[in-house]
Amino acid sequence: MDSSFAITGKGYVIVAADMTAARSIVKMQSNEDKIKVLGSHLLMAFSGEPGDTVQFAEYIERNIRLAHIRNTYPLPPPSAASWIRRELADSLRSRSPYAVNLLVAGYDLPTHEPKLYWIDYLGTMAPVPFAAHGYGSYFALSLLDKYHDPEATVDEGLATLRRCIDEVSKRLIVTPGKFKVKIVDKNGVREVDF
């Protein structure tokens, strides 16, 4: 039932994910953080099979950190996303595949560009200007088609995100509840109250 969104704008990417941890019809928790900070300029929103999600996200987090230590500089977002996709694709053909959907967002320091990648549990990857996973995507994508602006300021981007979340809250039979929102830009990663 989890929903995650990401929107690029002028020099930033906004990533949002709902904060509910549910099992069957029961809401177990309403303050879960489903957006991992993988580096100084890299975020990853994860959703999918409970258990797999956290396990896979922690595995990715530590290996990205290891790559940073070994190579002295962090993996740029395109390389990090490619590596994460490869891990998922290899996992898919293993005995116990991870069923995890991801949004990888980052700010590419060498080229000074915001980057966003949509990745699903089958190992599909696409670089996109905006993205969504889960039930929220059925409502949000058409809105984003209409309102997304690659030149938008952070405030305008957050307003677009507000539209998406309001629409999901209004139409989806189960309201996702609160959302965690993080932004990555040239200054790094920060969380915003939403």
Partner: peptide, 12 residues
């Protein structure tokens, strides 16, 4: 290149 889809950094 296979793992990261980028040219290997020279120092690496």
């Amino acid at each position: 290149l296979y793992s990261y889809n980028e040219d290997i950094p020279v120092e690496l």
